[in-house]
Design a protein around this nucleic acid. Sequence first.
DNA 1: CGACAATGATAAGAAAAATTGACACTTTCC
DNA 2: GGAAAGTGTCAATTTTTCTTATCATTGTCG
Lengths: 192, 192
Amino acid sequence: MIQLFSIFNTMSLDVGAHLRAVRQMYGLSQRELAKRAGVTNGLISLIEQNRVSPSVSSLKKVLDGVPMALADFFTLDLALQPQVFFPKEELAQIGTGRVDLRLVGSGLAKRGMSILHELYEPGADTGEEMLTHGGEEGGVVVRGRIDLTVGGETRTLNAGDAYYFRSTLPHRFRNSSRESCEIVSASAPPTF
Amino acid sequence: MIQLFSIFNTMSLDVGAHLRAVRQMYGLSQRELAKRAGVTNGLISLIEQNRVSPSVSSLKKVLDGVPMALADFFTLDLALQPQVFFPKEELAQIGTGRVDLRLVGSGLAKRGMSILHELYEPGADTGEEMLTHGGEEGGVVVRGRIDLTVGGETRTLNAGDAYYFRSTLPHRFRNSSRESCEIVSASAPPTF
DNA sequence: CGACAATGATAAGAAAAATTGACACTTTCC
DNA sequence: GGAAAGTGTCAATTTTTCTTATCATTGTCG
């Protein structure tokens, strides 16, 4: 009796789709993974189509080729995969006034750093009171010109110039030019 | 070809022993679990002996009978199972002087309360300065007699008597009798 | 274009898992 | 004691998984 395996047999765990997702996540072809795992590509094809329910030992062998532990395989929630690509519209706008700050990945649960896309309009200024906070930060001027003061020393950075300093040092960004200035920066640990 | 399944095929995951442990943890017989899971007892026997490596769908069915999720099954670390039985010798001695305190489960990672086996020698006294700490505590006098002062009121408790109060109330234990007194107490959140 | 390599899918047979229906053993209960 | 119902195991059979070998499709390179 030929019977197609209902996806719902495994109740809310689609092993096939799951394996396929994992495999593609690692950029492997069925054959490539098969070779590493010591199984045949056919098996992987069948598993991914949910036409068989692999034995635990088979699944183990396959995952060893990735490599990935069984526990991780069953624990991994594909829906919870951290987002990788962030369309412009999805960047969280956190700036005020003439300084426009857009945070990359504001929705991520845990971030090791804050990456910002910053836009300083002509005259924009982070304020005479210097900024100080923990960690380190750095960035690159993408467009325009900016006056950056760090620890008493001021420099004018042009497009292509970059900076990196410990955030405990008092610092200030000011756009004294007549065109807007665009910067991409990062700070760790995350400020926002 | 008859071949016994090496436990090491599944590399550090002994599915059979694991299933058996889970089943016994829930107090189920092979047949009982089989009936709930909609499989045969034979299968469970074979799986537990590692004479077959169950298909994921089979294992899923079996675990549904427990019930337990696949992810939990593979994640569960049997070694980390909290200890249930504590031989007398394993109780941590934390008392001083004439008061002997022995803590149940001092090795447990997380405890919701402290359970103590207390022994007050004749004349033993927790001190004139009243004890105060957070949470609640209670206990039963198992042997002997003890004078317990709580919130200004003093009572003499004999074997079989018990107490329960909020630990914020100042309290004091004193054994004014000529025989030692034995108490089993509990406090939550754990003091020790 | 045409040869070539790589991809995923598939039918049929080999191998392993799962069921059936026993068996031996222990516990419970009258 | 002895029936009755419980336990886990096991050989034989059925069912499913897995391999082998092939196919169709796609993309690459000369």
